[in-house]
């Protein structure tokens, strides 16, 4: 999807279909892509945090909503919705793969 740069964003254009689709796309990215990254980050933190297992799991979950907030705001600041989408998908996939690879290490007490 081609994007309207912020600096050219005029009131008149804010009602165009293209603008609306861009907003919808970013909203979806913040919601679904954001959840993926958040889930993946909590999974990875549950593996790597230097504390006991229950503390790792709870701390990762507590931090996850801070991650989601930051990620969702970043999506709306990203240069384009498309860029927001692929960055989130790649980051989420990488973290999830790492967490799954080290899963046994993540279950240490």
């Amino acid at each position: 999807m081609s994007e309207i740069p912020h600096s050219h964003l005029k009131r008149r254009q804010s009602t165009t279909a293209r603008f609306r689709w861009a907003v919808a796309s970013r909203t979806a990215a913040a919601l679904f892509g954001g959840y993926l990254v958040t889930y993946a980050s909590a999974a990875l933190l549950t593996v790597v945090l230097p504390m006991s297992r229950i503390n790792r799991a709870v701390t990762a979950s507590l931090l996850s909503f801070v991650v989601w907030t930051a990620v969702a705001i970043w999506v709306f600041a990203a240069r384009s919705a498309w860029r927001g989408w692929w960055t989130l998908l790649v980051a989420g996939a990488v973290m999830l793969v790492l967490a799954m690879t080290w899963r046994d290490y993540g279950m240490r007490p």
Partner: peptide
């Protein structure tokens, strides 16, 4: 965060293999 164990289950899935009972016991 109050209801996080309902919708943010990564910690239970990775740390406890999805065993919610074991998580609550811990």
């Amino acid at each position: 965060i109050i209801m996080m164990s309902t919708y943010m289950t990564a910690g239970v899935q990775i740390g406890y293999h999805g065993d919610l009972a074991a998580y609550y016991a811990a």
